[in-house]
Nucleic acid binder design. Sequence first.
DNA 1: CTGGGGAGGGGGCCC
DNA 2: TGGGCCCCCTCCCCA
Length: 563
Amino acid sequence: MCVNQSVCEMEQQNHFKQLLLQLNQQRAKGYLCDVIIVVENALFRAHKNVLAASSVYFKSLVPHDNLINLDTEMVSPSVFRQVLDFIYTGRLSSSDSVSDHSVSSLLTAASYLQLTELAALCRRKLKHNGQTPSSSNKLTTSPTPNGHTPGPLRLSSTPLRATPSHHNNHSGSRKGNLRNQRWGQEGRLREDLSEEEVFISGSRCASLSPSGGSRVNGLALGLDLSKRSPSGSTATEEVSPSSLPQSSSPHSSSVSPTPPTTAEPRENQRQLPNTSTDLLPRAPCKRPRPHREATNLGETGKALHKGLVKKPGAPGHEKLVRGDRVTPELEDGEVDGEENGQDQSEESGHSGSEGGGGGAGGKRNGNTNYIYRQPQPGFEPGVGDNLYVCIPCGKGFPSSEQLNAHVDTHTQDEIYIEEEEEEEEEGGGYLKDEDPDIYASRGVEPGADEPRHRCTVCSKTCKDAVSLREHEKSHWLNRPFPCNICGKLFTQRGTMTRHMRSHLGLKPFACEECGMRFTRQYRLAEHMRVHSGEKPYECQLCGGKFTQQRNLLSHLKMHTSPS
DNA sequence: CTGGGGAGGGGGCCC
DNA sequence: TGGGCCCCCTCCCCA
């Protein structure tokens, strides 16, 4: 046994410290993170075990949920970041920077999350500062950490189903060297998905009390983005609809509310408190900044975007491509240093992400959030080729980088719908805006004495802005379904919904052979030919056989090309 | 280095 | 509303 008791204790303490340090590092990298906490527009990745060990609230939720939505009136992203830091380090960030107000916010959050230790710490801090915790920690009346006084708690509307971030262990049972390499990369990417915090859709404020089981699925989008894997390869779990928040309002004009469908057991079915447009005008909800990283919820996501890390500040064309990975925006200086130096640095020559797209690259301080605004009657979206629409103001841009450049011009404070509507009513709408991007996107030259009101889609020149808007509506009508996350417009709702799944990293269709997951069943069927060796597509010219028709077509082009 | 093949992923469109 | 298919882009591997 131990001769020197003090040494033994010391070693133990180091062990704990090292363990926590490792966990925190893993959290920073997203490694083995198995739960995502949604706070307003930010996502935080974490480990269920750690959360459960720290919070009674989380303990009650994490066994059932891979996605947990927190009441934005109780905790803001920045506060939750501190909370998470505390959970993983046992320390609060520099006390010098912790104002009474932020301590109060922390206390509110700690109480909400039933983090007794943190709450006690905050109380001591407040007491030390001469404040009475009770006066600053009235959950029902205290301002939200972002400074807004919350209105009455509102339950979100229709619960949603979503494919959970089921665990998708791709590391095993790989067949074939080539596939192994590929999946190996993918596995690495998944690890890299790290960054514990990503912005998601226009998640309006879903206000749920802990007792209400703030469950979220893939995100207050008013969409059922889930699919059921025909393979049923993941654990099936049923959530009682009675435990779910009740619908309170209709949702998006472009997205039909999804009724709570629970008759069918779904894999890790989760219910998401939907949000409602009726909250928009009052609630200080923000639209998430369109980011070039698609959110990847759970392990499913192969990376969708990567522009942020790759080219800070340098926009690139956004296109979701294989190999891209989620690089969530960090908030308030969220340190992702852990990922630096890892091999997670993606090839840099790659051009970016897709509509998810856009934001100014690089790490952000994450405050560039906006009220999410559902397209509504009178909503003036981007048109034609301007597929990237700024949701708050409705301006359309041909590329996500332009959109994000524009988004950056928005004030970082919340933009209230009313204010915006007032602006529009005051005339000119966005054309009156001084944002140069608007001129660029609208074909109006800001410096010109007599701006030309030219449609960016068909180049038609209109006599004035009003005419241009009317004209552009004709284009808009062709793409009435905007993505709530990136603003990209779609011709069909189904296409948009499918697109959303890519943002959320929802890949419900799993290959029973290798565990690879797909966003579409068709892809899975196509993929299965890899395992079966079936090559149904044969070149009539050379007899070459292909597993995919597209590759046959590509092959045929080779035959027919002049060279 | 280059071209071809394999394959993942996204959007459009039809049913 | 979702499935299926087509087309496209892209990446990766390999010869």
